[in-house]
Design a protein around this nucleic acid. Sequence first.
DNA 1: AAAGAGGGCAAGACC
DNA 2: TGCCCTCTTT
Length: 731
Amino acid sequence: MVRRYVPLDDDLSPEEPPRKKSKHAELPAEYEADLAVDFESAFIAPAERRHTPAAPRRYATPPMPPDTEERIRRLQELAASIGTRILTDADAPAADTEIMRRYRDLLNPAQFLAATYTGGPVLVIAGAGSGKTRTLVHRTAWLIENGVEPESILLLTFTRKAAQEMSRRAVGLVGRGEGSRITAGTFHSFASFLLRRYGTLTGAPPAFTIADQSDAEDIVDLIRRELKLDKKDRKFPRKGPISETLSRSRNLDLPLAETIDRFSPALREFTGDIALIAEMYVKFKTAHRILDYDDLLDYLYRALQQQPEFLALVQDRWRHIMVDEFQDTNIVQKRIVDLIAARDRNIMVVGDDAQSIYAFRGANFENILRFPETYPDCRIIRLERNYRSTQEILDLANAVIDGALIGYPKRLYSDDTAPGRPLIKTFADQESEAGFIVSEIVALSSQVPLSDIAVLYRASFHGNFIQAELMRRGIPFVVYGGLKFVERRHIKDILSYLRIVVNRFDAVAWNRVLTLLPGIGGMTAGQVIACVMEHEGRLEFKQFKGRKFHPYLETLATVLETARDGRLSPLQQLEVVKSHYLPLLKEIEADWEERLRDLEVLEQIAGGYEELEKFLADFALEPPSRRLSTNDRPPDENEEEPLVLSTVHSAKGLEWHTVFVPHLLDGLFPADRSLKRIEDIEEERRLFYVACSRAKRRLYLTLPAQIAFWGGVLHLPSRFIADLRDDLYES
DNA sequence: AAAGAGGGCAAGACC
DNA sequence: TGCCCTCTTT
């Protein structure tokens, strides 16, 4: 079966492996040796691996360090030992009241159980498409119907989209009056709310501003330059990697040196200086009253932990806690939840370990696996009935996840027995692969709306050939991801003025605003900021009299003073700074007219607020997700809803009638950068599982026979399809 | 400070 | 191979 994928140039001898010129050449020597190992024996063999392909002899399996092996074994034990805690359909409560009967009829037995269980901590393992949101929303409604105060319900989610969806549907069930009284939000928005409201109790600075990821990087860059580290060593790492490492160290709760050792060995020789930057980074934020995303969680956690008064206050208010997407929580988030739930223990966490795909940003896969460890008396409910896909698609998805080393045992099933096994197909090259996909899309589009079809790939550039082909044939499509609205410079610029209006000490915003002015660069900006700090936030620029740029500074000061007027609405404040900013924008950007449209969107959003501080906080935490200027054209009645091109990550939680997953070559999916650590390969597998489980009726898995990749050639089919039983798919 | 040249690096993206 | 970042030059 696997022979079907055998690459065209398979005559390479073992003495001369094909990876000679490829990326793999950079791997350490022991890894070279390992490439020859039969991948079947290198894994702790999952129970159900069935056949031994000939080709995969050359799949790279990284060595497993003893501590990793030990940890994996522990997690396997945990996952295997949940038996006694599992509640089954038989444990569903009697439907002996009108309310109970109503909920029983609305939900399947497992969902019903999850919605009504109140006997303590619960873990709900919700498979893909199993009605997770439905269950949570009904639980919320059930609690309220049974006398729980809506105010005491806390629903924590990962994305603002999920939070809004929950709120909306809760309101639909219990009505606006009660539905709007529950707290549903992201961890960060919940933290931001508490820190602002209980500033003195939590130790958060007054009127703090929130630094997003790029702001955090800018701060690192300012420090890096101040320390002249780039001058000392031209190889000194850039702001991006440093900032990422600092954040990772906090998200994983690991000492900085260890974080560097484990995740960025290339930075090892700079550990001392990075530690120094870390120290100054903290001081910088304190001095300028800035909190980054990690701070929001850290401040909240510390306040809960160290201020009994505050903890009691929070526990008194929120007595029923539900956490969505628990597999994506990091260690700090888990601790926050544990603290709040410690007293009343009304906690339900919902998630799917098989869909944990965010380890790279600090999500701790183990939180969900170790829940039974934290709450030994917990109960576990599995939602395995799938309402999305056909059984034949689920069979393949189940097989994919069966190949994982760790995870709770589960098996999705569906009533949908519509025929149509997933298709796995190899093409000579990327062009013919793209050609095939687009032809199939064209053929399908007579029966299925284009918008119900998606192409999901591992990395954005995998979509290039398909995009080209779609354009050539005039098929409308949208690409998820790309440069976000909030990341566009003019949006950041305008928001920076407003940030200064709120927080005079926000040096990151100052830096942006100042360097916009002609004649002011990084050096001068630094001096001006220092001057503002010395004057405790007053706009005293007399000392720059005589310098060329002095008049600009005075103008800026006037604008900021005008905008600060407390009688103005956020929208009016925005207008004030905009009138100052527009001429500057025209100077620096040729396409300023198009950018103006983004500013209009910003105005629209600001119009909905009464308080500037709230507007800025919300905008930092809940930015509009897509590129608005290009996608928010007025909808054309006759225009067809476009096809979707997306990364698998961005597709999480979504579904389509037909899904194509292209470029299934080992080294692309799984990505070659993930092949060095067993945990990373595991995550790639879960990612592939997410991709497959997005499909409702048709699933296409395709690959080119080979692909030129950074000077080398990739030609092995993805290990995730190579080890599939051949009766699971067509070809 | 702004513009041009050369070198390094390359994924995924939530708040 | 191409883009982004930084360094160099004016």
